[in-house]
């Protein structure tokens, strides 16, 4: 009986915690949006952060893209080998990459590499009073630390998604043409028939939205950090886990939504 009561109490507490947490997070989204449109605009910091994101994830995004494209081409070829669909492999890979694989995989990579780094950097600044030092100097720490990171993620993600798409297609082309021996002309000729600009737009819009979410979640967990180095580790972990979960969940709803408007 006591056991059940405790269990219910714990459940209740964790529900209350999630709701207050969500309220906190929503408030943070509004605060950062407010400071994003308020001058001064810190172009240099924005540029530094975009450089940082590119530097941290370009290689691993390309690597993931190349192998994803190659594996995908191979799977389709093997799976449909009983039908003669050589000319469809190229368009199929390209469409899947453009609409789904490129934005989602890029999002997962960037959440893991950059969302984590955002939480770690800001969290460290928090526990070593660097955030207080900014505030004492009269500088808003959300404007100085969060805004450039969030905007940089929003701008970088579509770029990285585009790169993923390009490298992924290149990988599939290599497998299709060089390994499986499909004629190069056949591999590419149907692309124009199936591929629409809106599919690329879908991927880039997703990238943009994921970038926002990764940035806002990463910086939020940085500011939430308390209690020394251990707290920084916890915050970093939370940023990665939530960043990835949100990318996957939002992708589902966004796919639905974009299918209606594009």
């Amino acid at each position: 009986m006591v056991y059940i009561k405790n269990w219910i109490e714990q459940l209740g507490q964790s529900i209350i915690d999630s709701i207050t947490g969500l309220g906190d997070f929503t408030q943070y989204m509004f605060i950062t949006a407010f400071w994003a449109i308020k001058p001064p605009f810190r172009w240099k910091l924005l540029w530094d952060q975009m450089y940082f994101i590119g530097n941290k994830s370009l290689f691993i995004v390309s690597l993931t893209a190349g192998f994803t494209g190659m594996v995908f081409a191979l799977q389709i070829y093997l799976g449909f080998t009983f039908m003669n669909i050589d000319s469809l492999i190229g368009p199929l890979v390209l469409i899947s990459l453009a609409k789904e694989l490129a934005p989602v995989f890029t999002g997962l990579v960037v959440a893991g590499r950059c969302g984590a780094a955002m939480a770690a950097q800001i969290g460290t600044m928090k526990v070593t009073e660097q955030v207080d030092a900014l505030e004492v100097m009269g500088i808003n720490s959300y404007q100085y630390l969060s805004v450039p990171r969030i905007l940089a993620a929003m701008l970088s993600m579509p770029l990285l998604t585009g790169i993923f798409l390009f490298v992924g297609y290149l990988g599939s082309w290599l497998i299709g043409v060089k390994v499986l021996g499909i004629d190069a002309v056949i591999y590419t000729m149907k692309v124009g028939d199936f591929m629409k600009l809106s599919m690329i737009a879908e991927g880039l819009i997703k990238g943009f939205v994921f970038g926002y979410l990764i940035g806002v979640i990463g910086t939020y967990h940085g500011f939430k950090v308390s209690g020394g180095a251990e707290g920084v580790g916890r915050g970093t972990n939370m940023a990665v886990v939530w960043g990835m979960i949100i990318v996957l969940i939002v992708d589902f709803f966004l796919t639905n939504f974009l299918a209606k408007i594009l």
């Binding site: 460290t124 070593t128 009073e129 660097q130 207080d132 030092a133 004492v136």
Partner: peptide, 13 residues
């Protein structure tokens, strides 16, 4: 105001 923090709080970057 100027403020000197307990552990200096220099910007580490």
């Amino acid at each position: 105001f100027g403020m000197v923090f307990q552990y200096a709080a220099l910007f580490d970057f």
